[in-house]
């Protein structure tokens, strides 16, 4: 369980919000929307992997399976 995952997610979040601002200012709203979605999908995938690890370890500890 790597703690740096939190920093990665936060970094992606900050990057996406900055990129969003830049793109909106330069007039390309749809590009901003695309980068926001891309960032969200990446972060969601990482979190879903994390949650599947959590469920696996809960199953293991409480032998739910």
């Amino acid at each position: 369980m790597s703690v740096d995952l939190i920093f990665k997610i936060a970094a992606i979040g900050i990057l996406v919000s900055v990129l969003n601002q830049v793109l909106v200012r330069s007039g390309r709203e749809e590009m901003a929307m695309m980068t926001t979605l891309a960032g969200l999908v990446i972060v969601l995938l990482m979190v879903i992997n994390l949650i599947s690890d959590l469920f696996a370890s809960v199953k293991d500890v409480f032998n739910l399976q």
Binding site: G13, S17, V43, L44, L54, S57
Partner: peptide
């Protein structure tokens, strides 16, 4: 980090807090 992201991207802020929660949870499970 979650609070920092909350203003701009509330959805990513939620994901940061979920990730932190999951990491702490897995740690104490081990």
């Amino acid at each position: 980090l979650a609070v920092m992201l909350r203003k701009e991207r509330p959805d990513l802020a939620l994901l940061v807090s979920v990730a932190t929660g999951v990491i702490l949870f897995v740690w104490l499970l081990l």
